[in-house]
Simulated scan of single mutants.
Amino acid sequence: MNCEDKPNLKNIHMIYSVRHICEAIHLNELKQLDKENKGFSFSLFDTSKQGFITADDLGIDDHTTLYMCGPRPMVLAIKKQMKEKYPSTEIIYEAFSFTGTFLEDIIALIKKLIKRFKKKNNDQ
């Protein structure tokens, strides 16, 4: 595989979608991750102002790996849109119902991914 063919594993962008901006929790932790990790950034998506998030809102291409977690209807809708628009994109997801989930688990996963990507980039 040529360097041009390798996906850019050092850039992680998290889109944090909430119904209302006041529901966005753990912003300090996300801002700290953003500040401390050159390859990590995040943006807030307020569905009360922007409507439901769609594949068009993700700003990705066929060379992206999409990690997604959210309510089952959202996950299934975006997965379907992604398969239609970007059939080569790898999609890894977890859907939940509103019986509960912990953002701490998502932040732990992001930290783990950052470490893995940093290690891969250092090995190259």
Rank of each mutant, 00 (worst) to 15 (best):
A95L: 05
L113P: 01
I15K: 11
I53D: 02
T101A: 09
Y16W: 04
T54P: 03
K49V: 12
L30F: 10
I78M: 03
L27E: 08
I78T: 03
V18D: 04
D105S: 15
K49C: 11
M74A: 14
K85G: 06
G39R: 00
H20P: 01
N37K: 03
D57I: 04
N121M: 11
E90A: 03
P7L: 09
G51M: 03
L44P: 06
C22V: 14
F98H: 13
M82G: 09
E23K: 15
D57E: 14
E84S: 06
P73W: 04
L44T: 05
D56K: 13
D34M: 12
L33A: 09
I110W: 02
T54F: 03
V75G: 12
K115I: 01
F102T: 08
S17C: 11
S88R: 12
S41I: 05
T101F: 08
T54A: 00
D56Q: 14
D123T: 03
K38T: 05
A24Y: 00
K35I: 04
K6G: 04
Q32M: 13
V75E: 11
E36F: 01
F40I: 06
D105C: 10
S17Q: 05
F40E: 01
G59C: 11
K83Y: 06
T101W: 14
L27F: 00
L76K: 15
C22N: 15
K83V: 14
D34L: 05
P71G: 07
M1I: 05
P7R: 07
K85Q: 14
I21R: 14
N8W: 01
A95S: 12
G100R: 01
M74N: 10
L58F: 13
K115V: 01
E90T: 15
M82L: 15
T47D: 00
D5K: 06
D5E: 07
M74W: 05
R19Y: 13
Q50F: 00
P87N: 09
V18L: 02
L30Y: 07
A55P: 06
I78F: 04
E23M: 12
A55T: 09
T101M: 09
T89V: 14
I91M: 07
H63T: 15
M74I: 10
F45E: 08
Y16V: 12
N37L: 00
A77K: 15
V75T: 13
I106D: 11
N11S: 11
L44E: 04
K118A: 10
I78W: 08
G70I: 06
D46P: 00
Q81R: 01
S43A: 10
F96N: 08
A24E: 04
A108K: 15
I53A: 02
N8V: 10
N2D: 15
I91S: 00
E94A: 09
I91K: 07
K31R: 10
F102I: 08
K6I: 14
E4P: 05
I60C: 08
G59N: 14
L103R: 01
K119A: 07
E94R: 11
N122G: 02
N8R: 12
I110Y: 00
I107F: 01
L113Q: 12
L109Y: 10
L58C: 13
K83C: 13
A95E: 10
D61W: 09
S17G: 08
H20R: 12
L9V: 04
F96H: 11
E4I: 13
P71Y: 14
T64C: 13
S48H: 13
P73S: 08
L58V: 03
L44Y: 08
N122F: 04
E29D: 15
